[in-house]
Design a binder for these strands. Structure first.
Lengths: 207, 207
DNA sequence: CGAAAAACTACCCAAAAGGGTAATACCGGG
DNA sequence: CCCGGTATTACCCTTTTGGGTAGTTTTTCG
């Protein structure tokens, strides 16, 4: 396995250096140490690391949280907070960013290393989990009026982005029939377009 | 929200007591303190807690790992390791159980509390991750022409089944603009309808 | 600052999708 | 055998989408 690149976002140079040393001692590569939100984003764009160690408070502001949100929505890498603050407010905000870990200073090196390893592993696992396939009974379970098998196979084709024409062709029926069936499912699913139906199906699979 | 029940699995009474006190100080309820694998499983069966704090080494054996595996396959609750061992072998075994956290003794109370909170939150979010959320960079990674952030937020709304009108309203732009943006993304995604785009996005997230 | 990229808007036309009604055919259970 | 539910098809009309072109404003960045 190639070396893991770690981005450190920490505005206190001494602590940053501490963290960096701990990293290198454990065979991680520090891709950069940055002190501000802007620099962090710059780094993410130009030199995407495998994982980020994030201080929450950067020069008095809680901009670490914003970076975390960005990492969640734009980049797809794990991150760990390393901070001195563990008050309810900070923690509340932090947890909504779904961090892989939250380490309160003073940290111990072994704990940091362990948390890193686990964050990387869990993140790798998370990506392997696939989008579940649609299951008829799972869906009907939550509907007042159940979808028939025929209708279900139509829904699966819609779910895969097929047009009415394509559906008609693969199922050897007329597009009129397709439209009729689809309309029926809209009533059952309480939707009114294929896109909303897809979203609904996803939702029903989670209940 | 009702109080959170924590099961502590730790064979050193002094440390167990330490942990228990830290828990109660932070308004968690300690449902039980057990010293062996057998007792732990007994507790899980009769009095399922919301989360488990797990020592790995119980009376010289690494049976904490076995408990973790059991929690993963049978019970569906988060758990955190609290241990003195952070050697490669132990960590290697531990991470395969996909723990929510790994705390190395001596732990600090704030760190423990934070990790608990985040483990509970992330676990609650877990079924939402069953269908991974869309991530811009993940998607762009596989496109010749990248989708912009603005376009991405439009795509997310389409993914959620919104109509052009709804998208225009939530983004405070005209439907003409919406249509334009969507058309642009069709070029980039190599699709030609919202439903096919949704399917494509799902596919891109898996690559 | 100035060029380039991204965002926004409009308009037109065509294609696809959605809503409603109606009618025929098939199949299984009372 | 008849009934009810599902499946099938057709037709009509409306709304939503998609495709292409063209232009202005904003942002971004060298």
């Amino acid at each position: 396995m190639s070396t893991i690149n770690v981005l450190i976002v920490e505005d206190e140079p001494l602590i940053a250096e501490d963290i960096a040393q701990a990293m290198e001692k454990n065979d991680f590569a520090v891709s950069a140490i940055v002190y501000s939100k802007e620099d962090a984003i710059e780094q993410l764009n130009t030199n995407l690391p495998d994982i980020v160690l994030l201080d929450i408070n950067l020069s008095g502001e809680m901009s670490g949280i914003e970076i975390a949100e960005k990492i969640n929505t734009v980049y797809n890498i794990p991150f760990i907070f390393i901070t001195s603050y563990s008050d309810k407010l900070t923690l509340e905000k932090a947890k909504h960013t779904e961090p892989s870990g939250y380490i309160v200073k003073p940290f111990n090196e072994a704990g940091l290393y362990s948390t890193l390893e686990i964050a990387l592993y869990n993140h790798a696992q998370k990506n392997k989990r696939k989008f579940p396939e649609l299951a008829l009974n799972k869906i009907n379970q939550h509907l007042n009026s159940p979808v028939s098998e025929r209708e279900f196979s139509l829904l699966q084709l819609i779910y895969d982005g097929k047009t009415n024409k394509q559906i008609a062709d693969t199922m050897f029926i007329s597009t009129n029939t397709v439209k009729k069936h689809i309309n029926n499912t809209y009533l059952k699913l309480d939707t009114s377009s294929r896109a909303t139906s897809i979203a609904r199906l996803r939702e029903l699979m989670l209940l």
